[in-house]
């Protein structure tokens, strides 16, 4: 069987079309509250460009190509690593009242407040 990837013009257009549609549908369901992490999350996903950078650099045969390829990997790696770091940080912050109410959690204070509220009522 032949697993070699040959992407012809039309096949590329089909892939692009389906991927664009998938992106549109997936993102369309994200609530506004998550728009910032989503933007940085999708920003992280295009960090996959680093893989293309590695490919280009490994195939470089002149000093010029090596220099540019080096920057392609450098920038792509920054895109991917930075995008992950900030997205992960942001998403870890989102808590519900239930999770914050658990006393072992770092926001134990708010749990205390919720308990007081229950007593007050």
């Amino acid at each position: 069987m032949d697993f070699q990837i040959h992407i012809t013009g039309f096949m590329a257009v089909y892939i692009f079309m389906l991927a664009a549609f998938a992106g549109w549908v997936i993102i369309g369901h994200v609530p506004a509250i998550l728009h910032t992490p989503l933007m940085s999350g999708s920003n992280f996903v295009h960090g996959i460009v680093v893989v293309g950078g590695i490919f280009a650099l490994l195939n470089a045969s002149t000093a010029l190509e090596q220099t540019i390829g080096f920057f392609a990997v450098l920038l792509g790696a920054g895109n991917a690593a930075g995008g992950y770091a900030v997205t992960h940080r942001m998403l870890a912050m989102f808590q519900t009242s239930e999770t914050t109410a658990k006393p072992k959690h770092r926001h134990a204070e708010s749990g205390h407040a919720t308990a007081n509220a229950a007593k007050a009522r």
Partner: peptide, 13 residues
């Protein structure tokens, strides 16, 4: 294709 798909998903999003 991984770059194509990831790139285009982000483009549409």
């Amino acid at each position: 294709p991984a770059l194509m798909i990831a790139g285009m998903v982000v483009g549409a999003a």
